[in-house]
Design a protein around this nucleic acid. Structure first.
Length: 487
RNA sequence: GGGCCAUUAGCUCAGUUGGCAGAGCACCUGACUUUUAAUCAGGGUGUCCCAGGUUCGAAUCCUGGAUGGCUCACCA
């Protein structure tokens, strides 16, 4: 018990429970076989009128009328009104029902009818207390708003705020639709290690954990990439994984230290194919789950219908800042950064500065779905260089509503080039960049055996779900977002 | 990590110039056999986030701390 001193509300409920126990009820009854959900009763009234149904759920409100009583019972499918009369259940049962508290879990059986006011209602003939609720629920009208409580006690949020339940039901449907899409294209779903000796595939500080019997530290993965590409080397031609990544970084409305990524790899494709796959997948999922490719996000209509807009990073930076990097050298780039208020660090290369221009000045403006193509090689250590422009890579990111939702490239499969890229990352690491990649000798060794030309794609699942549930904070789409410990 | 804001009853929130701690819902007592944010008559259930300080007197002012939100910086 977390508090010695139970407050008045809990004490009252305990007293109600004790009163029932004196009458021989445990307060925690047996399973209650049901015939329908509350939502089904609502939806199928025409067929169910006059028939007996059994439901179980939470008693959410009560309106007493002397020798009769109305209430609302809520289950996963919805809410339906119940009606209880002394004549129907007898005085003893009626007084037992009166002793129930809001929040108690009950089973009810009775005929379906419609009240004078037109409300579909179950006329209870028998009921059972399935589980006593000892704590008072938040207010029925305003719901639970305190976000700290909502996230820490998500179960309460789900009980009281039905729209929250809808978000997570939709999350499940979106992920199921993505799996259907990939399975229908003969991708193989796989699982790769979360505990890794070398966390690779992204720029991020990892979480460190410790394996006791091995006597060594391990890292939680920051990306799925390298292991999945090892599977491509191994001969799987289409693989994907949907899983949790962990990055030891702060929170924001679009960042959570643990988040869900989809990564997929397909041989004999390139980033052009990945763009098509991305726009086809997202638009199809929207159609299946939301019934439309045009969705509303924060009062803006977003049209997910392919083809999505495509621009190179240089074009995008030119359009939104007026600075044309195709005619700017490093020195001029530094001057323009000053002029345009782009924050850069000393020693940054031309490509890194271009990337800063993009991230600081362009990203937030990409509301309609847009692919930004051809990223500088310095910020893309796992992507293949563009044949006639070695400073750039066959890489794109997809943006919706200013959120980066996709990251993909024609995979680098030249082990010699890959070793040089890693070496450069390691040098940055030694110069103090804790987020630079580490050398991964096993990954290089795999590439040395030969990896076919492959396109790879990463999708930020939480962000896609934000867009499709009109949520402006990533924590609204994660059931139990990471929080500081209580107390 | 920086800046701004918030924290008062179970929940949602008021609280004036520093002067007895408030409302709605929930809850308790009573009335009511088709109500529905049921209604009617009564009842306030509290570590005003925490610890100090100023003051005759602090929810209110000051200092420090905790937690949360927004925002900036880094990342997807």
């Amino acid at each position: 018990m977390e508090r010695q001193d139970l407050n008045t509300f809990i004490r009252q409920r305990m007293e109600n429970l004790n009163w029932l126990r004196e009458k021989g009820y445990s307060g925690y009854g047996d399973k209650y076989p049901t015939t329908h959900g509350a939502g089904q009763v609502q939806d199928n009234f025409a067929q169910l009128e006059g028939q007996e149904v059994s439901l179980s759920g939470r008693l959410l409100s009560r309106r007493e009328h002397g020798k009769a009583m109305f209430g609302d019972i809520s289950d996963q499918t919805g809410t339906v009104q119940l009606y209880l009369r002394v004549n129907s259940v007898g005085e003893d049962n009626f007084s037992i029902f009166q002793s129930l508290d809001i929040g108690d879990l009950i089973g009810i059986t009775g005929e379906v009818f419609k009240t004078r006011r037109g409300e579909i209602t179950v006329n209870v003939s028998s009921f059972s207390l399935l589980a006593k609720s000892l704590r008072p629920l938040p207010e029925k009208w305003h719901g639970l708003k305190d976000v700290d409580l909502r996230y820490r006690q998500r179960y309460l949020d789900l009980i009281v705020n039905p729209e929250v339940r809808d978000i997570f039901a939709r999350r499940s449907k979106i992920i199921a639709a993505i799996r259907r899409f990939l399975d229908s294209r003969e991708f193989l779903e796989v699982e790769t290690p979360i505990l890794q000796p070398i966390p690779g595939g992204g720029n991020a500080r990892p979480f460190i954990t410790h394996h006791i019997t091995l006597g060594r530290d391990l890292y939680l993965r920051i990306a799925l990439e390298l292991y999945l590409k090892k599977l491509i080397v191994g001969g799987f031609e289409r693989v994907y994984e949907i899983g949790r990544n962990f990055r030891n970084e702060g929170f924001s409305h679009k960042h959570s230290p643990e988040f869900t990524m989809l990564e997929l790899y397909q041989v004999n494709t390139d980033y052009e194919d990945m763009m098509e796959l991305t726009e086809n997948m997202i638009s199809l999922v929207a159609r299946e789950v939301l019934g439309s490719e045009i969705i509303e996000y924060q009062n803006i209509n977003i049209n997910l219908t392919p083809p999505w807009k495509r621009m190179t990073m240089v074009e995008a930076v030119r359009e939104f800042t007026g600075v044309d990097f195709s005619e700017v050298d490093l020195e001029e780039a530094v001057d323009f950064a000053e002029e345009k208020g782009v924050k850069i660090k000393p020693g940054m290369s031309w490509g890194e500065i271009l990337n800063e221009f993009f991230e600081q000045k362009v990203e937030e403006n990409l509301i309609q779905p847009t692919f930004i193509m051809d990223y500088p090689v310095e910020v893309s250590p796992l992507a293949r260089k563009i044949d006639n422009q070695p400073g750039f890579t066959y890489r794109f990111e997809g943006f919706i509503a200013g959120l980066e939702v996709a990251n993909a490239f024609t995979e680098l499969n030249d082990p010699l080039d890959q070793r040089e890229r890693f070496a450069r990352q390691v040098a940055q690491r030694e110069a103090g960049d804790e987020e630079a990649h580490m050398m991964d000798e096993d990954f290089i060794r795999a590439l040395e055996y030969g990896m076919p030309p492959t396109g790879g794609l990463g999708i930020g699942i939480d962000r896609i779900i934000m867009v499709m549930t009109d949520s402006k904070n990533i924590r609204e789409v994660i059931l139990f977002p990471p929080m500081r410990p209580e107390e």
